[in-house]
Nucleic acid binder design. Structure first.
Lengths: 260, 260
DNA sequence: CGCAGAATTGATACATCTCAAGCTGGGTGG
DNA sequence: CCACCCAGCTTGAGATGTATCAATTCTGCG
């Protein structure tokens, strides 16, 4: 049902020292509740490229991304695929109350997940409100992000799509510490051109061309294929077609999310 | 903040006789809880075409669609718009814990909403689990539907998009009573060509052309511009690019949803 | 060194958009 | 009751953005 975890098994870790303690589904839990979660939790590690869950498979756990990045993908019979979610640390995977996985979950970098056995987790959701409340909040944020993305997919040009993706990834990176340096925003792309294409509803060739165009126009600076510098973030936003206003758009920075 | 309700004010109605009692956010409430909801609720009616809420406006209520259909739309500065949700009876509007509306909500038919004052509703969510649990379930369904739609927007052809929309509307209609007649599935389109275009990320001309094409190919039969007969539902599904399998796709039939 | 996966770039095809005319049906006022 | 009107819709012809097919060129790694 899921592939063998190949990366070194993560050390069993105390929740109170967990890096995602305050953002994940357990964010609101008190000491007692945390103890209960400790009992039903275990860590799994995956290598970059490994599939965490296959769409349609039975799934007897839910969990949070502790570190690394995973993608959520939906496919059609003829091979076309669309990414429907990008899972970053603290994001939630799995749906309480559902048997099977609805999407493929794939690790794009080395990945560590904190998993909860589903049955006990569901029981806990019934009895204590804190987990359910937090999950609701995260799910609502994720819904906003999905709707934001519908606008990108349905109405934006290829160039705007690329700019939107860069803005989202850039914003998220800066959230997580890397401060807007005087020299501009700097980050690494966690996705291949093909993965970006899957996210944006484009082909990888078009992605490549538009990135080249943005580079030529000075909107971004590339070192190698993955390392990006954005000298003027406002310019990037303008290229994305959004006004600077924080609408539901902030969903992505408010984040902590739900899934599969 | 919202336009005057112009349609005749709906009669104050008892929850226990409410047509959406078992599907809406109140589905799991017991008698006591229902009494509390009764106290904070009021009905609003809107005429077809009226805007229920403007994106960015302060929103001091949340509520359920009782009858009629509304759309949830996101716009860009230059006028491009993308529909991000279709609100049918029992669907939920508004986000607890948020001040402003994230999207425009527009009535596409005459509409009746059951509204709850936000403050008391939020307090109730804190204290009793049934409302929050139901809302979580509805939000998760809505998230699945949104992701399903991302595949449509990102990867499907115009013809497949139209077929997908017809399948969704058709399926929903048949859910709500109208049985798959021997003569095939019959329903009325609740949307103009332009609204369909906004939903599908197309222009209204392309929508029109593809509908004509599906008609010419015998996939659908049109009487007037809105009345549709689908002689062979499986054929329609095939045209939509989906296999018949019920994946997350069933989100739309399992429904009862969240919003704005 | 050379290979393999990832990315770039080019030439061409095609789906969808854009702009522009008409059509249709239901409502309205003379 | 009829003529008109207008929003919604259809259809056409041409422009355009993105996909597709096909070489190369990178880049890291055994």
């Amino acid at each position: 049902m899921f592939q063998q975890s190949v990366a070194a098994p993560a050390r069993h870790q105390n929740c109170s020292e967990c890096p995602i303690r305050h953002r994940a589904v357990c964010a609101r839990c008190d000491g007692d509740e945390l103890d209960r979660l400790e009992e039903m939790k275990y860590y799994r590690s995956f290598q970059a490229g490994q599939t965490v869950v296959w769409s349609g498979d039975r799934m007897d756990f839910v969990g949070s991304v502790v570190s690394g990045i995973a993608t959520l993908t939906q496919g059609m019979e003829d091979g076309r695929t669309q990414m429907v979610g990008l899972l970053l640390p603290s994001d939630f995977v799995g749906r309480p109350g559902r048997q099977g996985a609805a999407y493929d979950v794939v690790a794009t970098t080395d990945l560590v997940m904190c998993c909860f056995r589903k049955k006990p987790f569901e029981e806990m959701m019934e009895r204590t409100p804190h987990v359910a409340q937090r999950l609701l909040q995260m799910t609502l944020d994720e819904l906003d992000a999905a709707r934001e993305w519908m606008l990108v997919l349905g109405r934006k040009t290829a160039r705007e799509k690329i700019a939107s993706l860069l803005a989202i990834i850039g914003r998220r990176s800066s959230d997580l510490g890397v401060m807007p340096k005087p020299g501009g925003l700097v980050f690494d792309l966690p996705l291949t051109r093909e993965a970006m294409a899957d996210y944006l509803g484009l082909t990888l060739e078009t992605v490549s061309r538009q990135i080249s165009a943005l580079k030529k126009d000075g909107v971004i600076i590339l070192e190698g294929k993955r390392h990006v510098t954005v000298p003027d973030f406002a310019r990037l936003i303008a290229e994305s077609g959004d006004d600077g206003t924080v609408g539901a758009g902030a969903a992505w920075s408010r984040r902590g999310a739900t899934t599969s």
